[in-house]
């Protein structure tokens, strides 16, 4: 087995439904040990990509390598090391939470039946479901099912966790617990691949990101790489709008007046914020507020994937 630096790597990965490319020539590179955020609006191809990574759907073109194993050919070798939550949890409603986990665990021929009970109990404890383990799943709330789905992904020591929208249906408390759990797992060296359309969730915990839009990856890299080499936003609050704009123009900064606020795009490291403030003060511009900062992930996301409720295509 060739040892790759990437836990997951795809080349030219494409999935077509008829003439429509749901996933179009994507080259994912998920470094080992990273918390990799997989972002994109609904319908951008995230879940289709995840299905291909897990061998559930066949790629139309391209290659997939998970832990150095080709998918789907060697899925049987790779998948025991991968825990996943795909497009929501799914269980047998007439079985208890504990029996559902036993069912999925017995499908894994590599899972040791002798340790099954202990592994199930520890997975249940990890997501705080021990008290509800005997309840039938049809009596579970959406949040409890989500937790049980995460427990199912944790039945074995894994090298990769693929979590598709893991905090769907969880209350803020539950969301925070999941974030803590993910950080905790990542600190043990597990690679976490987490897809979401909720930016806040991802921004707080991820080390790497890929952004999908209309089947293509429009940005990929570490958080640092993605936030720098970046155009930063200048916002100035002042009663002296005209004077401020001419001063900024003299600094080669193209400024505009937006409803009482002066705004400008400034290339990062092109000019220090204190230099700008200094020039404004010297020109006699009264400053009521001044910020120069990297765009938030959310703005970046919208700029990459388009605004509004429109599905990508």
């Amino acid at each position: 087995m060739q040892q790759s630096n990437y836990a997951i790597e795809t080349q030219g990965l494409t999935k077509s439904f008829g003439s429509h490319n749901a996933v179009d020539q994507i080259a994912l590179q998920v470094p080992r040990g990273s918390i990799f955020g997989f972002l994109g609006p609904n319908g951008s191809g995230k879940t289709t990509t995840i299905r291909m990574l897990l061998g559930l759907a066949e790629a139309t073109a391209g290659t997939i390598s998970v832990l150095g194993h080709a998918i789907p050919e060697d899925a049987g070798v790779a998948l025991p090391h991968v825990g996943a939550l795909v497009e929501g949890p799914a269980f047998y409603p007439y079985l208890s939470g504990r029996d559902n986990l036993a069912r999925f665990d017995s499908a894994d021929s590599k899972a040791d039946p002798k340790t099954r009970k202990a592994r199930i109990e520890s997975a249940l404890a990890r997501v705080g479901l021990t008290a509800a383990a005997e309840k039938k799943v049809h009596a579970y709330s959406l949040g409890m099912k989500q937790r049980l789905g995460i427990a199912n992904a944790l039945l074995q020591p894994r090298e990769i966790l693929i979590l598709d929208e893991p905090t769907n249906g969880l209350d803020p408390q539950g969301t925070r617990e999941v974030r803590t759990l993910i950080r905790d797992l990542a600190s043990q060296g597990i690679t976490i691949f987490i897809s979401s359309h909720l930016l806040l969730e991802i921004e707080q915990i991820c080390s790497h990101l890929a952004v999908m839009s209309a089947g293509k990856i429009v940005a990929q890299g570490s958080i640092a790489e993605l936030s720098f080499s970046e155009i930063h936003n200048l916002t100035l609050k002042t009663p002296d709008a005209d004077k401020a704009i001419s001063t900024l123009n003299s600094l080669d900064i193209e400024a505009r007046n937006e409803v009482g606020l002066i705004k400008a795009n400034v290339i990062h490291n092109f000019i220090a914020p204190e230099t700008i403030a200094d020039a404004l003060v010297k020109a006699g511009v009264k400053i009521q507020g001044f910020t120069l900062e990297a765009p938030k992930l959310e703005e970046r996301f919208v700029s990459l994937t388009g605004e509004g409720f429109d599905v990508a295509r």
Partner: peptide, 18 residues
């Protein structure tokens, strides 16, 4: 229909065996 098929297959169990 219940979605449990995908969790069985990624457990993983081979399709022939299932």
């Amino acid at each position: 229909n219940t979605g449990t098929l995908r969790y069985l297959l990624i457990a993983p169990v081979s399709r022939a065996r299932l």
